[in-house]
Amino acid sequence: MDIRIVVDNIGKSFGEKRLFSNVFAEIAGGQCLTVTGCNGSGKSTLLKIIAGLVRPTAGQVKLILDNRLCPKERIYYMGLVAPEVSMYLALTGIENIIFWTKMRGISCSKVEAENFCRQMGLGKSGCDLVATYSTGMRQRLKLAVIKAINPPIWLLDEPSSNLDEGGKELVKELIFAAVAQKAAVMLATNESEEVMYGKSTITL
């Protein structure tokens, strides 16, 4: 499937305050685009607009599948890792993975969920309640969820936040693996090393 996201003259204001305007970008499957900018510049908001979770004040985001505009179902092609997206604290890591994959209509067995946890460095903690996780472990669980869902478009907002060096390496491997399998990756970051992962960069 040939997939392309076109960000066409997007702007966002909150009341009188203009966050950003005239943002143009295009990203195709197998590419990584990085979004940088100082705190409060609107990186997270831009990713949420692209995901279809927030309406832009101006412009539009187009999802093009096999050269055909896909107007309504954009949100179902997205996966998002962001500080605002939390996991269920009263469920275990494995239960979280199984629940989120079921929401997308993807079957994921307990053994597969355990494997995703292990791959993300959670080890046997996948069987523990998320309420007992550290912030770094919760971030790893979010990465495990997006890997399990494996969407065609990956939206990663500060994916390395709260992660140790091993975790940062894991994020790098995840991004490169997603790009290798023709997913479109949009990465909002201020880490200088991560900015280098992108083929192109938008600065807000």
Binding site: I3, L65, E95, G105, P152, A183
Partner: peptide, 23 residues
């Protein structure tokens, strides 16, 4: 890779059981 979720009894049941387990 892409999956457009339809309303399925699986998803409804998943939301219900998630609520019940959390509760």
């Amino acid at each position: 890779m892409a999956r457009v979720p339809l309303l399925s009894s699986n998803a409804v049941w998943a939301v219900f059981t998630k609520e019940a387990v959390c509760e």
